[in-house]
């Protein structure tokens, strides 16, 4: 797929859909979020031409960051070819006319839902996360006024209550995704619903990581090389786990796997959730073999 196949309609939309004032407002929020790692910055979330839950926060953050020279990659659960990823990619092709790619290494801006690419990111990349609920304390404290005060005063006992409850009930912390983290030794934040397998990649990443929640109108961020620690107990430490299999396509034992049900008899297979990683690995193996 190339950019040439898709006509740019620059005359119908402002670059990247949003007007310049809105993008300015978003950039200010993003800069503030980068200055205070993990702190949730409110912003005036706009109506986007897609429903909430489809990445309106991520799309607004991406729109504020995109420049015409960018090369965009969009993934949903690690895959470039799911409906959501395809729609968002097409949206920006049409409204910003930017180049797109499925290769992690070639992208300058990656918008993601629920995954961090397996291929290590670089200082030249921005990773934009779509976030459904930006407040990690919301599960236990419904009042926004109270959660804001708790963040301000670093009252994070409640966060551990949730983890305590998990261990008490299930013998271990059952969060397999959205495992809360402490950013830069100060703010507890949600990494968005990425699998806990991806949590270690948050820390000390060379890339800029931005988190946008459209419905909740909050942006938080991690500047490059920020220390990010997954919350845990001394005697129940955090473990980045994944399905104990290898990818049936590329044979990787290191990548995060999706379980795919193959028939009505309970047949299943495990394959990489990161389609680009899996594809390029398979291609490399092919080349080796031939």
């Amino acid at each position: 797929m190339t950019t040439a196949s898709m006509p740019v309609e620059a005359e119908s939309y402002n670059f990247a859909y949003l007007d310049e004032q809105t993008k300015r407002m978003l950039r200010r929020a993003i800069l503030k979020a980068l200055a205070v790692p993990g702190y949730q910055v409110p912003f005036a979330s706009r109506e986007m031409p897609m429903p909430y839950g489809w990445g309106t926060g991520g799309v607004q953050v991406s729109a504020a960051c995109l420049v015409p020279e960018d090369r965009l990659k969009v993934i949903d659960q690690g895959a470039d070819d799911t409906t959501n990823a395809v729609s968002i990619r097409k949206f920006f092709q049409r409204t910003a006319g930017v180049a797109v790619t499925e290769a992690t290494t070639e992208a300058s801006l990656i918008q993601t839902r629920h995954r961090i690419p397996e291929t290590p990111l670089t200082e030249d990349q921005i990773l934009v996360y779509q976030v459904p609920i930006p407040e990690p304390l919301r599960f236990l404290e419904p009042r926004e006024t109270e959660t804001r005060r708790m963040h301000a005063l670093e009252e994070y006992g409640l966060m551990h209550v949730k983890l305590y409850e998990d261990i008490a009930r299930h013998g271990e912390i059952t969060n397999s995704y959205a495992w809360p983290v402490m950013a830069h030794d100060r703010y507890v934040m949600t990494p968005s619903p990425i699998p806990k397998f991806d949590n270690p990649k948050l820390s000390d990443s060379p890339a800029v990581q931005l988190f946008g929640a459209g419905r909740e109108a909050r942006i938080h961020a991690l500047p490059p090389y920020t220390k990010v620690v997954s919350l845990d107990f001394e005697d129940h430490p955090f473990v980045a786990s994944k399905a104990d299999h290898e990818c049936e396509i590329c044979g990787s034992r290191e990548s995060y796997l999706d379980e795919v049900i193959t028939d009505d008899q309970g047949g299943r297979m495990f394959v990489c959730s990161d389609t680009d990683f899996c594809g390029s690995r398979s291609a490399a193996l092919e080349t080796e073999r031939s």
Binding site: Y156, G157, L158, Y164, A168, R169, F233, E234, H236
Partner: peptide, 18 residues
């Protein structure tokens, strides 16, 4: 849970051993 209710203040003052 009852245990979580009692434990909250401990965790709030830094208790990190389940």
């Amino acid at each position: 849970s009852a245990g979580g209710n009692i434990g909250e203040r401990l965790m709030a003052v830094g208790g990190r051993n389940y």
